[in-house]
């Protein structure tokens, strides 16, 4: 049971992070490719977005390891 709980926690966390990261990185790449002079601003926004998206899967992985 503990292994299933850990797998569900990590799996769902990684699924959400994957979708979120994909959206953020995709839009940023589009923006930088169109206007390379805005790279600094777009990179800053992407950095904050990716960091906030990844906080949850990191907690999920930690909780999964504690449960196991």
């Amino acid at each position: 049971m503990a292994a299933i709980a850990a797998a569900i926690a990590v799996g769902l966390g990684a699924l959400g992070a994957g979708i979120g990261n994909g959206l953020i990185v995709g839009r940023t790449v589009e923006g930088i490719a169109r206007q390379p002079e805005l790279r600094g601003t777009l990179q800053t926004t992407m950095f904050i977005g990716v960091a906030l998206v990844e906080a949850l899967p990191i907690i999920a992985v930690v909780v999964a390891f504690i449960v196991m």
Binding site: A14, N21, I32, A33, L42, Q43, E54, P57, I58
Partner: peptide, 20 residues
């Protein structure tokens, strides 16, 4: 990643798995 996109090169990853 920003450097690679600005120079029209390919980037590999943003290191999610390493952080986990």
């Amino acid at each position: 990643l920003g450097h690679a996109v600005a120079k029209q090169k390919s980037a590999h990853s943003i290191g999610t798995f390493t952080r986990l």
